[in-house]
Design a protein around this nucleic acid. Sequence first.
DNA 1: ACAGCTTGTGCAAACGTTTTTACAAAGGTG
DNA 2: CACCTTTGTAAAAACGTTTGCACAAGCTGT
Lengths: 341, 341
Amino acid sequence: MVTIKDIAKLAGVSPSTVSRVVSNHPRISLDTSRKVKQIMDELGYHPNMMAKSLVSKTTNTLAILLPRPAEELFQNDFFGELLRGILTQANRAGYDMLLTTATGEHDEIETVSRLVRGRRVDGVILLSSRVNDPIVAFLASSDFPFVLIGRSESHPDVLSINNDNKQAAYDATQHLIAQGHERIGFVSGPANLTVSNDRLQGYRQALEAYKLPIRSDWTVEGEFLQESGYRAMSLIMSLPERPTALVVIDDVVAFGVLRGLTELGYKVPDDISLVSFNNISLSELATPPISSIDIGTYQLGYTAAQTLIRAINEETIHQKQIIIPHRLMVRESSLTPIKRG
Amino acid sequence: MVTIKDIAKLAGVSPSTVSRVVSNHPRISLDTSRKVKQIMDELGYHPNMMAKSLVSKTTNTLAILLPRPAEELFQNDFFGELLRGILTQANRAGYDMLLTTATGEHDEIETVSRLVRGRRVDGVILLSSRVNDPIVAFLASSDFPFVLIGRSESHPDVLSINNDNKQAAYDATQHLIAQGHERIGFVSGPANLTVSNDRLQGYRQALEAYKLPIRSDWTVEGEFLQESGYRAMSLIMSLPERPTALVVIDDVVAFGVLRGLTELGYKVPDDISLVSFNNISLSELATPPISSIDIGTYQLGYTAAQTLIRAINEETIHQKQIIIPHRLMVRESSLTPIKRG
DNA sequence: ACAGCTTGTGCAAACGTTTTTACAAAGGTG
DNA sequence: CACCTTTGTAAAAACGTTTGCACAAGCTGT
């Protein structure tokens, strides 16, 4: 391995001079700089990042922490889009990304602790909308730069990027109401996630605002998986009184819903209308194309990275809870007027 | 920051003893070990990874390098699944993953050079099927542990994980032939990728074997994007003589094909049958579900990580070119017997 | 011509580990 | 009980950087 000392020796200067050439120190003469740079090129020198990090106490690396079992996450296009946003901004700012997943409760803290206390990374992007997330608690108490993508009930004040999920669900529901629906159900995600609860709440508020019935048997809780949506249909559609429209927590779940409905012989949107969330690229390719709330996934990631880097550089961040705007993409799954009865 | 010296001082031992406690050195007395560990717990000590890496010359980090513009890749579910496989195995073996993308030609080499020569990572997983990839050339010449997911024409001997794409395409085509098709087209990817060429070749060999016509206007080159498949349809379906079946390079492209065909008023599989590749989770949710070659994406990633770690540990690897088996998943898009004419 | 500034470079300490060498104490052997 | 082996610990060098301090040489202005 070629080190700064090798370069120094060959160039006839001291290691410190070489170091200063590398970091463009202003007080290096053009002559020396040229000479040293030429030798660096010849030997193919690259600074040892570990040594650099050790003394500078900075790694130019961000961790992205995915607390849920990876299995579940990666099936969702949402995740790729988020990652793309994060990577784009991180790379632009000269940061590398460490991708980490952790499963068990204890494991989680251990992993993040290792990265944070071990000075492996300069900051953490945490993807979590758990009502009460121990990792958030840990990070908040350790005053290490981090940003939360999502919302934590127990720690509402941490730096975070999120959507106005309540409003988004309100909008989605209102849209269905505007199409003439009066019997609207909700296919939700896990109850310990703020994203589920916020959306559920928005849905309920819309129903209330329009004086429509809120029936608890029309709300089904599940996971962010196709299978969940599929199973929800056998539940809901076996009820004596069925909804004519559904708000679905996530596109992938909506695919399952669609499959379930199709198998049960229902047509979308003729028998049942559908609106879901996240607007992944395939939602417009479904048959029929699915109406979905675009939550600005790319921007969510992009902004998270950007904000984190600001925090690392100790810039003052005026708005600690950043909301990315959403937008309802109306497609065929919610367009045909309903048949009553 | 709490260091090994702080622990040493409090425990009344030397720093080296603390280090040995951390690394479970056999010659440490149970007494000392317990005492030191207790103090470590109290102070919340975690070893500084940078310092550790500097002396051990090892980072316990793998880089995954995605040379293509991230945009294109992340839209494809294939990528998430691959990542999942890599992460699972890497984490299991105690490695962190650095996720890197690079776009420009020069940029690419610079990025990988920085990581490799800067001793930032212990090994590289490169996702590339470019016929002639400068990064492969660089890595091969620098004798740094790396594994290629894909195949390089110019460097066939490097450690690599791949599918038998030729055979897979042969199988796909043969399946269509078995369904009675005699006029079969091919929607391909970029011509500078071995994956495109291999599949194209397998497709052609199958046609030859069954003495069916190979018509060059039934082969359309494109990208790994929906849009590509969509555009290919306006080309192919405007020909005076049209195929009755298509082999499509990738599921996402197949979604575009499906959309194109639907818009042009063709029914799948009644008018046109479809078989594609990669078997992403949504291919069975399309309408109709798309027949696809499962290439064992998860296993591709898992094996890549596993093999790379072996290479890092300097185990001898007997099989340098590893082939992950594929399997045709027959679904509705290729099942109905054709209408001739 | 001399004090004072500017410019360019070197020395050496520091970052937090690991690991080699050394050595004292304890245990085993004849 | 003298010797050898084993066990447990400490001291110090090394890993490859950065950076504060020092200082020589070249300028500037009076």
